[in-house]
């Protein structure tokens, strides 16, 4: 199975390379270091969010509220920055993951302590958080001219040819890869979702692991809120509407099992890059941006069909309680 999983990652890597090569054949500019760096910058937020979502999926849950969390946290830090432009970017960088973690922990508590199916919980908080963005902003937009220079500049700072935003994604990937392989807590995510009953006997608190996963996913979504608002230099109620589907798609394409316990960091990164390449290549190939949603929908559908072939475990485990 381990071999099988690695095979799968290699396969996806080859497909991603082929896709990249296919586009490059027609548009050599697509694979210059400059455009590849742009591609990474453009996909960084998706990569980060998909890593957080993977943790949640590993524990047999799903977090549909990430995009709403992102929008709410992004708006809150944008408002903070607008009110106190002199404070610089540091409070924003510290606060955004904290706010996000709180919002994620709320999901986590409901799943952990009240044992409500995660899809119900996050479907509910998705709409609560999204509505809260409007309440917080009064429906107004925060535009780039209302953002401080450091707020906008920080993630655009170049280091060794990559933006800080890209480096954040790179660091996130490395941290996740190490933590999921080498830390006991990381390993316990796999155990908790792989067999919740056995995990309980082994002294692993499955509900607690779900709580941790939701909190981590929330913290990442919160940080991504700042990253998103800064990168697109605007905050409003509908920011990143529906982006949770892209995030889940990246995981599914990357081979994370919706039934828990299976998934690799490499797969998730490739899944996110795959979607990023498609998104960036479409305008080049001359396809109207209106096609983007249909194409990613098609890719997701094909990916889940391919995934389902190898997945013999019972479907819809995600809707069942991950409890013994």
């Amino acid at each position: 199975m381990r071999l099988h999983k690695i095979d799968r990652d290699v396969g996806l890597f080859v497909i991603t390379l082929l896709l990249l090569g296919g586009v490059a054949l027609k548009f050599p500019d697509f694979i210059t270091p400059r455009s590849l760096a742009d591609l990474l910058d453009d996909t960084a937020i998706l990569v980060l969010l998909a890593l957080g979502q993977m943790l949640v999926l590993l524990t047999r849950a799903v977090d549909l509220s990430v995009a709403a969390n992102l929008a709410l946290t992004g708006m809150l830090v944008a408002l903070l920055n607008q009110a106190h432009p002199g404070w610089g970017v540091l409070p924003v960088v510290i606060l955004s993951p904290l706010i996000g973690a709180l919002l994620g922990a709320f999901n986590g508590v409901l799943v952990w302590k009240l044992k409500i199916p995660s899809i119900v919980v996050t479907l509910g908080t998705l709409s609560v958080y999204r509505g809260a963005v409007y309440v917080a902003s009064g429906g107004a937009w925060v535009n780039s001219n209302q953002m401080s220079e450091s707020f906008l500049g920080f993630i655009r700072t170049q280091m060794l040819g990559l933006t800080v935003l890209s480096w954040l994604a790179v660091v996130g990937v490395i941290l996740f890869a190490l933590a999921l392989r080498l830390s006991v807590t990381g390993r316990n995510f796999y155990a908790a979702g792989g067999n919740p009953g056995a995990a309980t006997y082994a002294g692993i608190d499955v509900g607690w692991m779900q709580f941790l996963a939701f909190t981590a996913s929330g913290a990442i979504a919160g940080l991504a809120g700042y990253l998103w608002v800064s990168r697109f230099a605007v905050a409003y109620t509908d920011v990143a509407q529906g982006f949770e589907l892209q995030v889940i798609a990246a995981c599914v394409i990357g081979g994370v099992s919706i039934s828990g316990g299976v998934g690799t960091v490499a797969g998730v990164v490739l899944g996110a890059l795959f979607l990023g390449i498609i998104k960036n290549a479409l305008p080049l190939v001359g396809v109207s941006p209106f096609w983007q949603m249909a194409i990613s929908g098609l890719v997701i559908t094909i990916a889940v069909i391919l995934n389902a072939r190898g997945d013999h475990s019972s479907p819809r485990r995600i809707l069942e309680e991950a409890r013994p």
């Binding site: 796999y190 155990a191 792989g194 067999n195 056995a198 316990g261 299976v262």
Partner: peptide, 11 residues
């Protein structure tokens, strides 16, 4: 335990 309580996806 009666049914092998193990983790199928781990080594």
């Amino acid at each position: 335990h009666q049914e092998a309580v193990v983790f199928d996806d781990l080594t």
